[in-house]
Nucleic acid binder design. Structure first.
Lengths: 194, 194
DNA sequence: CTTGAGCAAGACAGATCTGTCTGTCAACAT
DNA sequence: ATGTTGACAGACAGATCTGTCTTGCTCAAG
């Protein structure tokens, strides 16, 4: 069971799923595609084919649904990254293959940037803590990989790689994957070289 | 007359200004601080101390006000960058001093990331064209500076610097200036060194 | 003094958003 | 057979949002 890019922001729920799953999958897709504030409850209700009371039975409020979507996103994104770099024999190869994995994401037809960066950009100080927690978790993972790879000054390298990854995500969002990939590969190679 | 950081997202309008200016300055501040969708017309009306009809006399719609704020932001941000790097004797020094200028911005009490990245993150495909135009203009300016500095492969360096700048802005937004500045300086030095 | 422009204050309409409530139906267990 | 549970459908309330309209005030030019 591998995590595909479609799972990251795919075509939406299947009709045979139960009400809660359909709501969650529909919201997951619409929140990412159109934004949190721009997506109303009524739209999620209509597109998931669910009664309003069924929605409020499973989620006490819209904010609870947002939190559930972000938690699902966090889990799926981490799983997708893990699967994409499963073949790397060691930490060094894992880091070197990271741009390839990101490129597959950037070229996905539903790519619209990092859901957590977008959430934080939209909500500002009111953003759910999951937003910063996600990027902090990724930074911690990068630092651990740099340490495992035996790089010199691993925490310095990790912060540089983290900045490059986030920059590439935003660059792919604003200017497209073709604009983001060459500098991403070049900078990654430089940071990993020494 | 220099452009200060306060002008980028400062304390707001002065009461002696005319109605249009007060609306524009209030919206400029609230849109950046709270987001476009989260800021309603009524709030702008109330905080700028202006009648609703006075608002709609100067701006035909909320979208027109958003566009005017983005255009003002574009102009002020470019002016601020120009002023901050005015002392650089040549293009090479200009590029080397860019992280210092950015740090001043990141540590401003009203810093909340790039208004155009945030706008694009919030509105997605419906974002006004000014959003991508701003980052494209900055990329073009970086490339020209790289060319003027006599760097080898200036277009490659410029795209790398652009990715680093955008990454630093997002990193400062998500994790603070202290997390963004060391990798920003390190990567800048590496790209400019050769 | 009159007249007209600009502005403040606020009512109003229509749409939309969140959240609650009622009613109906099908599946299922006792 | 009967009660329970989950779900669909949709009305409804209250708030909020955009945009229009009316009224009255001030000030300056003619």
């Amino acid at each position: 069971m591998t995590t595909t890019l479609d799972d990251l922001a795919g075509p939406g729920p299947q009709p045979e799923q139960d009400a809660r799953t359909r709501v969650l999958e529909t919201a997951y897709r619409l929140f990412y595609r159109d934004g949190l504030r721009a997506t109303g409850i009524d739209r999620i209700i209509a597109e998931s084919g669910v009664a309003k009371m069924s929605f409020y039975r499973h989620f006490p409020s819209k904010q609870a649904l947002v939190d559930a979507c972000l938690a699902l996103r966090h889990e799926r994104w981490n799983g997708w990254l893990e699967d994409s770099l499963r073949d790397a024999p060691d930490a060094r190869a894992w880091l070197a293959a990271l741009p390839d994995a990101l490129e597959g994401w950037f070229r996905s037809p539903w790519f619209r940037g990092c859901a957590f960066i977008n959430c934080h950009a939209e909500a500002g100080a009111d953003a759910p803590p999951m937003a910063v927690a996600h990027v902090r978790a990724l930074a911690a993972r990068l630092e651990q990989r740099c340490r495992d790879a035996g790089l010199t000054r691993p925490e310095v390298r990790a912060t540089e790689l983290m900045l490059v990854v986030e920059g590439a995500i935003v660059r792919a969002q604003m200017a497209g994957a073709d604009a983001a990939m060459p500098p991403l590969r070049g900078l990654f190679a430089r940071v990993l070289a020494d």
